[in-house]
Design a protein around this nucleic acid. Structure first.
Length: 345
DNA sequence: GAATCGTGGTC
DNA sequence: TGACCAAGATT
């Protein structure tokens, strides 16, 4: 009997998107197999992040650290700097922890087993299923945002997320085939990223247009439903950019946990709700001057407005200064780079 | 279950 | 221009 998955795989054989970490259906037919390290790297980077944003980062990471052993041997600061700008920095911290665990506990080879993958840092239910199916072609149910959307539409499910997750996972479980589960998982995600898109789905050219319940009901574009989000508060604070006469900058490595954890950053005040007085917290004694303008930045759950203070200090000033030739603005998370740009441009 | 945790693109 | 959105994990 012909399954729905056959229609999707047939579509995928023709329309699979080309990506640097992906082995195309044609290449697989010729015997090529994915590199589990590359699959893992791409899946971590793709968490809540678009293919367009990930591609350049993936290529830089793979060029700099071609194997998991190379990555495991890297300095923390190198990896955090290379990740800068991609966001969700806990992923980079866990990337290193995971690489070191694979070397220490798995002989430098990623395990194929779903349960073993789940125990590794930064690998949750989605990523474990994605790696075991895409890299090893084991049948696991892969449920990401694309799959949730496709399932909600296929079965015209109006229960809002995240409450609908178990229902949608059940649907996904029933549709997942025994044959080519890795290609199938990528096919559903490609479908969700291209045809079954969030805003205006192209139902007319969808390989699943006939069996889709939401298309029949005319509700595709309004699914999946989601519970309302909380409004974002506005906070403000101050950062301090001190440069020595020899060009070195006063910088700090932020605490491991919390926002921008483990990243390079300018010293500064706490960030407090607007309405409270903006705290003043210069890291050293210096002739601070306020820079014209301000930094505006939006994080996942709040808006931020930053005043930027700057000063030139003597070469014998106290504090942890990073020499000019070891400072790359691209090693800064975006909000910190914006502060640098305000001073420098 | 709810919060926390980034960023750039899009409409 | 502001809200929404993206191949989620962790606590």
């Amino acid at each position: 009997m012909r399954d729905l998955s056959d229609d999707l795989l047939e579509w995928y054989d023709v329309h699979a998107r080309a990506m640097p970490w992906r082995v195309s259906p044609g290449a697989k037919k010729a015997g090529a197999r994915p590199d589990p390290y590359a699959v893992w790297m791409s899946e971590i980077m793709l968490q809540q992040t678009t293919v367009a944003a990930v591609t350049a980062y993936f290529q830089r990471f793979m060029a700099r650290w071609p194997t998991v052993a190379d990555l495991a041997a890297a300095e923390d600061s190198e990896v955090m700097g290379e990740w800068a700008g991609l966001g969700y920095y806990a992923r980079a911290r866990n990337l290193l922890k995971c690489a070191r665990a694979v070397v220490a506990d798995h002989g430098g080879q990623f395990p194929a087993d779903h349960a073993a993958l789940l125990k590794l840092p930064g690998i949750g239910p989605y990523t474990a299923a994605a790696i075991s199916s895409i890299a090893f072609d084991l049948r696991h149910v892969v449920v990401d945002g694309n799959v949730e959307r496709v399932m909600a539409r296929m079965f015209d499910e109006h229960t809002p997320l995240p409450a609908a997750k178990p229902i949608l996972t059940d649907h996904a479980e029933r549709l997942t085939p025994d044959q080519r589960p890795g290609d199938y998982a990528q096919a559903v995600m490609d479908l969700g990223a291209t045809i079954c898109s969030p805003k205006s789905p192209a139902c007319g050219i969808c390989p699943w247009r006939d069996p889709c319940a939401a298309r029949l009901a005319g509700t595709a574009a309004e699914l999946p439903k989601k519970t309302a989000k909380k409004p974002k508060p506005v906070r403000h604070g101050t950062v301090y950019l001190a440069q020595r006469e020899d060009g070195a900058w006063l910088l700090e490595t932020r605490a491991e946990k919390g926002l921008l954890g483990g990243m390079l950053g300018w010293p500064g005040s706490d960030w407090v709700d607007i309405g409270e007085p903006r705290p003043v917290a210069p890291p050293i004694h210096a002739p601070w001057v306020k820079v014209d303008g301000e930094v505006r930045h939006t994080f996942t759950h709040f808006h931020l407005m930053l005043d930027v203070m700057t000063a030139r200090v003597a070469n014998d000033a106290t504090g942890t200064f990073l020499p000019h030739d070891r400072f790359r603005p691209s090693d800064l998370p975006t909000v910190m780079r914006k502060a640098y740009d305000l001073v420098h441009k």
